[in-house]
Amino acid sequence: MRRLLVGAAALTMVVAGPVVAQDFPAKDLQGIIQWGAGGSTDVVMRSVTPHAEEVLGADVVMQNKTGGVGAIATKFVYAQKADGYTLLMGAENPQLYKVMGLGDIDYSSFVPIDILARGVPILVAKNDAPYGTLKELIDYAQAHPGEVKVGSTGPGGLPSVVTAMLQSQTDLPMTAVPYDGDGPALTALMGGAIDVMPAVLGAALENIKAGRIKPLAVIETEANPVLPDVPPVTDTLPDIATYLPWGPFFGVFVKEGTPPEAVEKLTAAYRAGAESDDFKKLMDERGYKLMNLSGEEARAFLDRWQSVTSWLVYDAGIAKKSPEEFGIPKP
């Protein structure tokens, strides 16, 4: 029945104008956003997509499918047809699903359309904390083991990975207090419920500028242009550079096996979107690094990210399974 109707519809379209394979997209697309409305993934996707829509000549209907650290959306898109009409709009999380025991699907089951941008992590502390630099924090924590409360967003989240990086370099006994996301955790930091918090620069920036929280170090090898006075973490812990650059990222993906024409069209559309001035300005102001990677470059970036992070969380004891089980090479 369905086929018949499609046939009839196709027939009318043939009458109306020639339809051939490269006429992707022939209908509206669906964009499945892994995180909730108003979050950073949501904001990034909703601001880049209108530009991509112009190039595609079709609407991308975006929906937030939250839950399971993004696993619900990832599984949903994976269950759809590989026709390029369902886009996964996600963050870095799926690259850790395997070691965190959240399923067998990660971005290796998808084709990256565009890795749009990467966030820069920064370590911030509450204003009345008795330390003003990373060095002082380390000394204080060692003198008062377990007393420093560090905000966390659950195992595998940015704060847990950055804390693991720091702890791989020095003894840093802190108590991790979990929150639902970096927004609520930063609010708790301002209210004094926690003492320090590794966060993505964009989320902490306005509060730093207003002097409500104080920055200790950016987790990069050099200072960030948005906050030139904040020292890079490598000033204190130079060996941490092996993990860097590291940061959460945002990307658009389609299921593996999607026809190359569709991938090409989508890649061109999102590349144009990421190159638009609006989007660049938004990313700069929020302290994100624009990446705009696709094809092999994107794949290489995803693989390196997964290998660095998986081993880091595994060595820190927060992973459930060894990366070796999945053939993830050591960095």
């Binding site: 369905r2 499609v6 519809a9 196709a10 009318t12 379209m13 022939a26 209908k27 509206d28 079709a58």
Partner: peptide, 11 residues
């Protein structure tokens, strides 16, 4: 289901 809405809408 059996009604190809998307295609009709796109048309």
């Amino acid at each position: 289901g059996i009604v190809p809405e998307d295609e009709i809408l796109a048309m």
